[in-house]
């Protein structure tokens, strides 16, 4: 009778998801003894990974993929703690190119990005952060809740050096975890290194 229970089973999953989301939301918003900062970031991106990819019996060789990213960052600082939670939203544009024996190609990729993570204040000037990043994997005109592979999930590590009270230098390494099929990484390689600046708007 497994099939009969499918609808109920789905609803149960939906209920659990909502519960987890609710608890998570409650957790991040109930940090009564915290203060938050808003900053903007701009990053240069160099993406890399496989240098050649086979698609349907044709080998494509990838040239450099690079681009930029603009983010709005919101960090919650807990009183008397060395840890902050950080949330980011932003826009990323990548430029890619490559060739096969019969053609050359180039193009651009626009992504809406978000990230959530923890920042550890090593010293007054140096911070280390780790994020779970999310971006639209499919084009947004192909978006439908009934599809898989909608989002790319990546893990990243970031180091930040405060040049002044408001300005910071950042260096980040990101590794895409899923989905990383060749159809996706041909134009959006699996790894990224980002170098950038942050400017603190509020404190």
């Amino acid at each position: 009778m497994k099939l009969f229970k499918l609808r109920t089973k789905n609803l149960e999953h939906l209920g659990k998801s909502r519960l987890y989301f609710g608890l998570f939301f409650l957790g991040i918003t109930s940090s009564i003894h915290s203060q938050y900062d808003i900053s903007v970031g701009i990053n240069y991106i160099s993406a890399f990974g496989k240098r050649s990819i086979d698609l349907q019996n044709t080998t494509y060789f990838l040239n450099n993929t690079q681009g930029y990213e603009v983010t709005l960052n919101n960090s919650y600082h807990f009183t008397n703690r060395k840890v902050e939670t950080i949330f980011k939203v932003g826009f990323r544009q990548l430029y890619f190119s490559g060739y096969s024996t019969n053609l050359t190609y180039n193009g651009q990729l626009n992504k809406l990005v978000g990230a959530a993570g923890l920042n550890y204040l090593v010293t007054e000037e140096i911070n280390l952060s780790s994020y779970l990043e999310i971006e639209n994997n499919l084009d947004l005109d192909e978006f439908n809740a009934g599809n898989g592979d909608l989002f790319r999930l990546s893990l990243s590590l970031e180091g930040k050096y405060k040049i002044s009270e408001k300005l910071g230098l950042t260096c980040l390494f990101s590794c895409a975890m899923t989905p990383i099929s060749e159809v996706y990484i041909l134009i959006n390689p699996q790894y990224q290194v980002r170098l950038g600046l942050t400017y603190q708007i509020t404190k």
Binding site: N102, L103, T104, N106, G107, Q108, N110, D139, L140, I187
Partner: peptide, 16 residues
Amino acid sequence: ILVLFGCKKINVEETL
């Protein structure tokens, strides 16, 4: 805005 910005464009040069 989402549709315009969350997309890809590919240009290809090949002999057909």
